[in-house]
Write a protein that binds this DNA or RNA. Structure first.
Lengths: 224, 224
DNA sequence: CGGTTATTTGGTCTATTGACCAGTTTTGCA
DNA sequence: TGCAAAACTGGTCAATAGACCAAATAACCG
């Protein structure tokens, strides 16, 4: 388990990190194939069961090619985490587009989050595994952190336009709302993964929506 | 990754599973040492980094001894998960003892959960890793499920005495409350692990307490 | 088109891993 | 106390892991 070098990760925002700057089209495609292959392999065997050979096979690529594109296995897995995070944030943005007020926006955001999960539990499981994996990988804890903060920020960016006023207090309250929304949905997802019970989880999501709307109201983010 | 045999796990409730029935005191101690050693090693290197040798070393025991007590690595790790679950449930019961009403009980339960986490983040991280690990381990998904249900049940048992009436509806509502309490605290813990910010998390816990008390009220579990 | 670089191949190397077991020591019971 | 069963030791083994590289091939640019 080699320590991840931070040098390559100076580029600011998500999605771009871990992507070699100078790369031909073919190379970028192969890279993409490897990441997708890794995701496939992860869905099947999880972080503990994954091997570079399985990844290469799933990607339809020779083992050596993997090491040409990625310094080591860690970097590849972290690239998968990065991709998943970006993908989820994009889904969220699309899901809430067109909301007319904060009430609706909260509802849509949570339903989007939940539906994304329900569509593919395996990927959601992989996401958690990789987040914990990043926390464990020496020099990569910041990736888990950035991933989480980015996702909170995604919610934040989506809620903020619907909040009244641009003052500091409002911003802080929106931030608080985003954090609790994230925490709530994460907890429900985790519960569903560990002890599947779709009806229960859906009802929990509905309860969470109400609770978060109530919270927004009590924070003065929704006019009474 | 051999499939976990279910045969040994016919004993009903938690904590007892995975414990060989006929074992001398010495043997039980060694078993205990191995589980503790595994926990230590897990705290240091996580599920992906753990090896039977590290465990044996941490336990102060020969490698062969490990395989004498546990059929394979999987079974040992699952035994650790079992132990952690039992330990956490016990802590919860102690933490809420003496609560005078549901309001107080909810508060104490959540604070107990949170304090246990704050006392040792590493162990909490291990707990999540092992839960996901169980989900991945062929034939062991039920362990993750039982662990989760047991923990929900622990909350349930703690809340139920404070709820008015013994009817079906009340029971269901208490159940729903427990699930959301669990989901909420899990989400917050996960957030703290991924993106540490103690002040934020503590404030989130406080918000969660209020929200859950409000929920209990709206479910008719707390007389107005 | 030709040459230079980027990419890919396929094979290899070494370290480590989980598991195993023959033999030795300890334990507990008759 | 003596002896059978339980517990433990220490060494071994085959399998597999990640990494590496020289050679072959493909892409790109003037």
């Amino acid at each position: 388990m080699k320590e991840v070098r931070l040098a390559e990760a100076i580029e600011g925002t998500s999605g771009a990190v871990l992507t070699a700057p100078r790369a031909s089209r073919k190379a970028r495609e192969t890279r993409e194939k490897l990441i997708e292959g890794a995701l496939l392999a992860l869905c099947e065997d999880g972080v503990t069961g994954i091997t570079t050979r399985k990844i290469a096979e799933r990607a339809g690529v020779q083992l050596g090619t993997l090491h040409y594109h990625f310094e080591n296995k860690d970097m590849l897995l972290l690239a998968v985490l990065d991709m998943l995070g970006a993908r989820l944030a994009r889904t969220l943005r699309l899901g809430v587009a067109g909301s007319r007020n904060l009430d609706e926006c909260i509802q849509r955001a949570l339903l989007t989050d939940w539906n994304a999960t329900e569509e593919n539990f395996a990927i959601q499981l992989v996401q958690y595994e990789l987040t914990l994996y990043a926390l464990r990988t020496k020099g990569a804890a910041w990736m888990a952190q950035r991933q989480y903060n980015d996702y909170i920020k995604a919610h934040n960016d989506v809620f903020a336009p619907h909040a009244p006023g641009n003052d500091q207090t409002t911003a802080e309250n929106v931030q608080r709302l985003s954090q609790l929304v994230m925490a709530g949905i994460d907890g429900i997802i985790l519960q569903e993964l560990a002890a599947p019970d779709l009806a229960r989880s859906r009802s929990a999501v509905r309860a969470l929506i109400s609770a978060m709307q109530a919270l927004a109201r009590s924070l003065g983010l929704i006019p009474a």
